[in-house]
Simulated assay, not measured.
Amino acid sequence: MNNIKVVKAEQLKSKPDANSLGFGKYFTDHMLVMDYSADQQWHDLRIVPYGPISLDPSAMVFHYGQEVFEGMKAYKTADGNISLFRPDMNLKRLNASCERISIPQVDPEVLLEGIVQLVNLEREWIPEGEESSLYIRPFIIATEACLGVRAAKEYKLLVILSPVGSYYPEGIHPVSIYVEDQYVRAVRGGTGMAKTSGNYASGIKAQEAAKQDGYSQVLWLDGVEKKYIEEVGSMNVFFKIGGEIITPALTGSILAGITRDSVIALLASWGIPVVERQISVEELFEAARQGVLEEAFGTGTAAVISPIGTMKWENEQISIAGGQTGEWSKKLYDSITGIQKGERDDHLGWRHTIS
């Protein structure tokens, strides 16, 4: 597909200081846009200058929440090329989210070609620091002007880019986690398996309370019994208990993380099995009391691997791995980021290279 229309920005922005990027604060000069209508389907894929979009006040996204998004990254590799990490998985998950929210699915090959062209155009925005990358945010919103509880007939897909540093100020240092036992994020049969904004909006209240108490993130329990561990607000979670690595099973209310899948596959390639099962918060804290909770870490596109140093549940706080970065957290982080940046052998074929 070579007919992507490109309208270049007349005036380019100044690049931010690579040492103070933060996460999601700066945006590049251009964005990718595509429209959907019932008669034309997805059409008019184009690259245009980054800027505001115009929507009718009755656009259905504002009233009924039809929205899905993804998170990807582009990296400058050791050989001077640009790479994406498993973009096919992200686009597969985008379409799974679309299916759950009744949004028309997108041709992944067409969208990937558009993303590649956009990233190539903005290649000078890709930072080169150890924990830096170019974050890619595809999202789809319902734009039809109508007040009616049904699937919209018009949508807009956009892809914006943001040069980022570490997601957490701590970087690859342990974070503190608060186990939420009042509010719930999702239930089986709901939208927990979809990457849709409502899932994140429902978690803000608990996240605010956790931060007031000095914790970085919220760990969610299942929405029915408030007993079984599900995921952190922006990450899937893994625990090493008595030598065994465990992660909550995908039961329909947990997002199927790309990094989660990568960790399981990478460990398997090293001959280390991961047990996917339900694990209760009581089991986890009892393991800590018995001294057999050896390590805990979160996984996600934004943070990659985030060691967990402390956790609080009810009135009890536990320290994990002495509050230090664990062996597997460090090894997995180094391996995945090394593959992403072309510094390690891509023996599982995950790197999508843009020359």
Rank of each mutant, 00 (worst) to 15 (best):
M1I: 08
I4K: 09
K8S: 14
D17L: 08
N19I: 00
L21P: 01
G22F: 01
F27I: 08
V33K: 13
Y36C: 05
Y36P: 05
Q40Y: 03
Q41Y: 08
H43S: 11
L45Y: 10
I47P: 09
V48R: 07
P49A: 09
L55Y: 09
Q66N: 08
G71T: 07
G71S: 06
K76I: 03
T77H: 06
I82F: 10
L91E: 07
R93Y: 12
A96K: 14
A96D: 14
S97T: 11
E99C: 03
V106M: 14
L111V: 11
I115S: 04
Q117F: 01
V119T: 07
W125P: 06
I126Y: 02
E128G: 07
S132N: 15
I140N: 08
T143C: 10
V149D: 05
E154C: 00
L157K: 08
V159E: 08
P169T: 01
P169Q: 03
I172T: 08
H173Y: 03
V179I: 12
E180Y: 09
R185Q: 12
G189L: 07
G203C: 08
I204V: 15
K205R: 12
E208I: 12
K211I: 06
G214F: 05
S216F: 01
Q217L: 03
V218H: 04
K226L: 14
N236G: 10
I245T: 14
I245L: 12
P248M: 06
A256L: 01
V263A: 05
S269W: 06
Q278S: 13
I279W: 00
F285W: 12
V292A: 03
L293W: 08
L293D: 06
T299P: 01
T301F: 01
A302H: 00
I305M: 00
P307T: 06
I308R: 01
I308K: 01
T310K: 15
W313S: 09
W313H: 15
S319G: 14
G322H: 09
Q324A: 13
W328S: 03
K330I: 00
K330T: 01
D334F: 02
L348Y: 13
